[in-house]
Structures are given as C-alpha cells and as structure tokens.
Amino acid sequence: MIDPRGPRFAAAVTTVVMVVVLLTGSGWLALAQAAVFGLTAARPRLGPYGLIYRGLLAPRLGPPAELEPLAPFRFAQTVGFVFATVATLGYLLGSPVTGAVAAGFALAAAFLNAAFGLCLGCEMYLAYRRLAGRPLAARVPVA
C-alpha cells in the first residue's frame, strides 16, 4: 500500500518535464523521463520522484487518510514508460510528430493525476481487474 500523495507529486513533476519535452522537442529529456518511469515501475521505492516526496515532503505532512494498492501504480508507470519511450524514439529518430503525440498523451495523463487525482493507468488496471472477475479496492482508509 502507498500514500496516494506521492504519485500525485510525481505526476506534477512529470507534467513539468513533459511540457518541457513538448516545448523543446528534446528526445533526450523524454528518454530521461522514460528511465524514471521504467525504474519506478520496476522498483517503486527507488523512483526518484518518490524519493524526493518521501524525503522532503512526506515528513512535513500528516499521515495519509487512505492508502492505495501498489499494483495499479506500477501498471500506470509502465504505461507512462511506453509513451515516454515512443516519444523518445519519435524525437531521436526524426519523427517529431510521433514524439509530440506520445509526449502529449503522457502529459495529459500526468496532468490529470497531478491536478485532479485521476490516474488513468490506475483506472485501466482496476477496470481490467473488474473485467477479469478479480476486483481490487482502489483505496483503503487508514485505521
């Protein structure tokens, strides 16, 4: 279980990064963001944005009111990795339209999570679990 404020912080940072990617067309920055997504999907406790959140912000906040399961977050990071990788390939291999479209999708998803707490990848994962007949609670109150 994870504090949902951490992924929202990470989404806010990702939003800024993806805006810069779109403004500059930097495939190298898209690659850096893809690496962040990949590392965070594989090892959530080692994700750089999560480390910043846990080290600098979480100690200044009260405990979370609810927790979220880790699996939807990991799935969302994997989806972000795919979009950031496509953006990287688009920009670095000479297809800036492909790069911009993929970066735009990553930006939209990150912004929705940062601004409204709507994690599209998480919702996709939870919908899949419901369709598979193995529903998973989206949030659990902290006792």
Score class of each variant (00 low, 15 high):
93 L>R: 15
69 P>N: 04
127 A>W: 13
2 I>T: 01
88 T>A: 08
14 T>R: 08
134 R>N: 11
138 A>W: 07
19 V>K: 02
61 L>Y: 03
35 A>W: 08
58 A>G: 03
114 A>L: 10
83 F>N: 03
101 V>A: 15
119 C>V: 01
88 T>E: 11
35 A>G: 14
35 A>M: 11
42 A>T: 06
43 R>F: 13
46 L>D: 14
9 F>W: 05
5 R>I: 11
31 L>N: 08
76 A>G: 01
94 G>F: 04
121 G>Y: 02
91 Y>L: 05
6 G>D: 09
87 A>I: 14
4 P>H: 02
103 A>C: 08
14 T>I: 12
18 M>L: 15
22 L>F: 07
111 F>W: 15
53 Y>P: 02
132 A>P: 00
33 Q>E: 14
111 F>Q: 05
125 Y>T: 00
37 F>R: 00
94 G>R: 06
85 T>E: 01
2 I>A: 05
95 S>W: 15
64 P>S: 08
22 L>E: 04
125 Y>V: 01
115 A>T: 08
6 G>R: 07
135 P>A: 11
107 L>T: 00
58 A>F: 03
41 A>T: 01
125 Y>N: 01
54 R>C: 04
40 T>W: 05
54 R>M: 02
112 L>C: 10
44 P>M: 00
6 G>S: 12
19 V>P: 03
29 L>N: 00
82 V>I: 14
113 N>Q: 15
38 G>A: 15
143 A>W: 05
91 Y>D: 08
92 L>G: 03
87 A>W: 12
18 M>H: 12
128 Y>A: 07
103 A>P: 03
119 C>L: 02
75 F>K: 06
37 F>Q: 02
103 A>K: 07
116 F>P: 01
25 G>C: 02
112 L>W: 15
88 T>N: 10
61 L>F: 09
130 R>K: 11
92 L>H: 00
62 G>W: 10
34 A>W: 00
